[in-house]
Design a protein around this nucleic acid. Structure first.
Lengths: 235, 235
DNA sequence: TGCAGTAAGCTGTCTGACAGGTAACGGTCG
DNA sequence: CGACCGTTACCTGTCAGACAGCTTACTGCA
């Protein structure tokens, strides 16, 4: 007779959690192929249906995608639910960004280590040398994340990363006008120096000015007041 | 021989979309039971595994939950994926909470509608009458979320909800000491009045004081400085 | 060497079955 | 007549095996 070998409760949830953790941790990086369903089943000690149910969940969360006859691929290392993107307008996201990044700069000025300072300085140096706009954008992201990192609060790091991710999906964080380059460089340096000198108020003010200036760049084409786009209130 | 009837491509995605639409449309309301997997399979013309994979996706999106031997229940009519996955110390979460909720109070004072004011007043009134600590906690959550709502920024609402969720997982947002009750009530009222009077600075200051006071309540047992618990930096 | 055909591997789907949990119904006993 | 207990029906959770359709890569033939 068949003896179900401990069909421990929640095998699907278990596999899902493990796969999600491995994707978040980078064991499976974006744009790489996951092992086949059969292999995953063997390695987790479960059957193929269980693996499939977990994979469908990953897909629903926007982490993976499957192609018939080829395999399953990681497409993102963090949860991307369509509703999450459509629901929040760029104006809303930018508003929250200010709420997070300005205090982040303040905390960074209070807590930054020598290592943090070196990291940020390195990014600024590479940014001055970079001509490719895409590369400059990538370095700009690194700059903001490095500051979040200097705040010593991993949750702030996560938020800064995610908010930027959402903005980039609106393709609004890229494509800086060329004339912004010199201005942005100066703003970055002002933030950097305030952090170096452990000047919380100065760092916050500099970050405030930087974000405001960056947002003004897009003010012409898409001017929408967050208040105007508030969701319908019902209860 | 078996003749696969038209195994049209993407049956799972199809069922998922239909179920999601029906939940969003209200055909299946929260707290009601979905038809059993077999019935769903019959009505959609697919087999049980396909239905199961779609249901697991719904579950991953936070729309449904399944109970062995009973059935599958709708728990929410809109996608609720925790934006904040991962483990963050209470100190880190509280720090971010201040970053979000203080500006939220400020924005609420700037943008609140008459309806918002009524909503918040109602919550405060119910809180004064409530004796059950659990109920008071629930109302406290409603109060903070209502303020976030008044800010007109749905992303702020989402963050306030999620941050509180994370804190409650640490069971640190509940169990207010009894003597906090009168103080909390006064703090709430101060925030409320500043919002009523459209006083952004006052609202921000009042929320600041409220969060600081609430945090001091837990300061004795678990005193940890965010800086001490910063994650290891490596690169 | 070039190309076509085949084989292997993958996802997508179906069938059928068993394990274990839950709830409701009915029968038996006090 | 009422309370308690066992049976039964239903549901989710899991497994095994199989076939269809797609893609890739290899192999053999021209």
């Amino acid at each position: 007779m068949r003896l179900h070998v401990v069909p421990r409760k929640g095998a699907v949830a278990d596999v899902l959690a493990k796969l999600q953790a491995q994707i978040a941790k980078g064991t499976y990086k974006p744009d790489t192929r996951l092992p086949s369903e059969s292999e995953l089943g063997k390695s987790f000690g479960v059957s193929r249906p269980v693996v499939r149910e977990a994979l469908m969940s990953l897909q629903a969360l926007g982490l993976t995608t499957s192609q018939t006859g080829i395999g399953t691929f990681v497409v993102s290392d963090r949860v991307r639910v369509p509703l999450l993107l459509g629901r929040y307008s760029p104006a809303h996201v930018r508003e929250v960004r200010r709420c997070v990044e300005i205090p982040a700069a303040r905390l960074a000025a209070e807590r930054r280590s020598a290592r943090d300072v070196g990291e940020i300085a390195g990014i600024l140096a590479r940014m001055d040398e970079a001509d490719n706009p895409a590369r400059r954008n990538l370095l700009d992201a690194s700059f903001h994340i490095a500051i979040a990192h200097s705040s010593g609060n991993p949750l702030i790091v996560k938020l800064v990363e995610d908010l930027r991710g959402v903005l980039e999906e609106h393709s609004l964080a890229v494509a800086r006008a060329p004339y912004r380059r010199r201005a942005a460089s100066e703003e970055h340096r002002a933030i950097y120096e305030a952090i170096v000198e452990c000047d919380p108020d100065g760092a916050a003010a500099a970050m405030d000015a930087h974000l405001a200036a960056a947002e003004r760049t897009f003010a012409e084409s898409s001017s929408q007041d967050p208040k105007d786009t508030r969701e319908a209130k019902s209860k």
